[in-house]
Amino acid sequence: MNRRAFLHTTIASIMAAYLFGGKKYAKAARQDRSSTVVMARIEPSDPEAGFNALRLQSVLDRALESLTGLPSPAAWKQFISPNDVVGLKVNALAGKGLSTSKALVEAVCNRLQDIGIPAGHIIIFDRMDRDLQRAGYVISTNKKKPQCYGNDRVGFDHRIYEYGAAGSRITRLVTDICTAIINLPIMKDHGIVGVSGALKNLFGLIDNPNKYHDNVGDPFVADVALLKPIRDKVRLTICDALTAQYEGGPPYMPHWTWPMNTLIAATDMVAMDRIIWDIIEEKRREKRLPTLREAGREPTYIATAADRNHNLGHNELNNINVIKI
């Protein structure tokens, strides 16, 4: 390829990514009349050893195919272009046992590289190096492979981004370094805001999450999702519900977890959280625990995220198309 052709290709890719890439898709999720949430079940080949990346990769492919109607890797290109620098926002706060699994992250990294993203353009992150290490991740800034480090390593943009009740600085990983974010939450009960899933995981992108737990996190959780750089860059959510927790969260309480053996994929974080909430409530009923409302922590922020002001997605079950595979 000569220099001229190279430049043409590069510019065309950037334009295409900007005009037709994940940004368009992410916005469409908010504007469509209904949203799709894919629940892909997987059984571990060896329950003792857990899941490996290869098996998760095939399930992930099927989940994204169901979500987009396209085969992998074309499905991935609906969200991510080869020119993107992709941040994978994991949830590592609860340590080993209830953090985004390394196998899932590895599977996502593999697929991103398959569509042409250089390994060094993938950054696995959460709030602090310490949190990631506690969950079993190895900190790395080696650009020959996917990098992995905490927000504390790069700091926060100095600007205050505001929406509604939220006013925060945002990690430079979102504002300066990454062009796209894939949200990789886990599915768990939360002692203050009721449920921690897609929307709540975004608290790891801001400098002051401790200020946003009043009033069961409502409207703060919804407001944070609308801070401009977050709204613009989060393109896809894949929830690690391989192990889920129905009580005692956010810390890991093994006696309140169950092997759900499922990956949940969606672009509509509100719809995903609504489904997660329902599943957790069902499990709580089964275990004869009070509902989250009775426990004083109904996750009302989910409905707020769907209201006319926020318009982040769908909260009504009638408008959520759940595909189980």
């Binding site: 609860a94 002051n208 401790n210 200020k211 009043d214 969260g249 956010p250 810390p251």
Partner: peptide, 9 residues
């Protein structure tokens, strides 16, 4: 909860 901080951070 365990591993969490108060409002003051």
């Amino acid at each position: 909860d365990d591993l969490e901080r108060g409002y003051c951070g």
